[in-house]
Amino acid sequence: MQLNTPIAHWHGRRVWLVGASTGIGLACAQALRAAGAMVVVSARNPQGVQNWAAQDPLVQWRPLDVAVNADVQATARAILSEGPLDLVVYAAGYYRAQRATAIDLDDLLQHDKVNYQGALQVINAVLPDMLARQGGHISLLSSVAGWRGLPNGLAYGPTKAALTHLAETLYLDLQDQGIGVSVVNPGFVDTPLTAQNQFTMPALISSEQAALEMLKGWAQGQFDIHFPKRFTLWLKLLRLLPYRLYFPLVRKFTGL
């Protein structure tokens, strides 16, 4: 079902990806560029993206720490001064496994600062321009880890749940303003973040596969872009279970 205006053709469109130094963000930037988009990529560390950006005049690299409000505002102003943005993708992410039996408040707050507050900073910086011209699309990279509480997800999961809730509210507020909103909920994707996991990740896919799923979701006008379906559809069913069934089931399958 189309909840947004489909974006199937990228030639002439301008995209800003925040958090695109590695993983899904970088793969998505490369897929969008291959499809014909003009791409601006930002992240705190250049890593593998700066060399790629330097090879293509239609790719711009702009360093950005999403935790610094002044930098977000200045970077957004500079990008918008060169033309409107058709799509803004917030893909910045921070992940460390944490349980309540070994709580680390500083780490909890760092998750919130990068995963959620950074998204608020970027939205605040780009939304006035989109509202003024009644156009554009905002896409937030969340995670199935935010769908329900999970062991080891004390720090990460709540920030992703907040992003999903934020996207839902943005959609309701902006649908009649000509602005699209989508939320991306990947399952397990092979990235530097998931490389920390010490368990077998079911239905693991590559960052490149994740990027193609995102482009397919935008082309179909989806709001909830989740993948791979062979994994995420089962998780959607789990969301419907009452707590008296959900909690024991999670303990059984995770051993935690």
Rank of each mutant, 00 (worst) to 15 (best):
Q175T: 08
G221H: 07
P192C: 09
L109H: 09
G149T: 14
D106A: 15
I103G: 02
Q73P: 06
G149N: 09
E213L: 04
A27H: 13
Y243S: 08
V49R: 01
L17M: 01
I103P: 07
D112Q: 14
Q2T: 06
V250K: 00
T194Q: 09
N185A: 05
L166W: 00
I138C: 05
Q60R: 09
M1K: 07
Q50K: 10
N51I: 09
L108N: 02
N45S: 15
S81L: 13
D106I: 08
P46K: 04
A125D: 11
G93P: 03
Q55W: 00
R96H: 11
Y90D: 05
L235V: 07
S42Q: 12
V41E: 00
Q209I: 11
N197R: 14
L240R: 12
N4F: 10
L127W: 06
R230P: 01
D129W: 10
M201R: 10
L140D: 02
T159M: 07
A67P: 03
N45H: 15
V189A: 12
N4S: 01
R44C: 10
Q134E: 12
G12D: 11
G136P: 04
I24S: 04
Q220P: 00
T159E: 02
N115C: 07
A37M: 09
V88F: 01
Q47K: 13
Q47Y: 04
G83C: 12
T22L: 14
G36D: 02
Y95P: 00
P63W: 08
D190M: 12
T22I: 04
G217V: 03
L237K: 06
L109K: 14
C28D: 02
P57W: 05
R148C: 11
L58Q: 13
P186Y: 03
H9N: 08
P186W: 09
A162Q: 08
W52L: 13
V59Y: 01
L108P: 06
Q47S: 15
A219M: 01
T200E: 14
Q198Y: 11
F253I: 15
N152F: 12
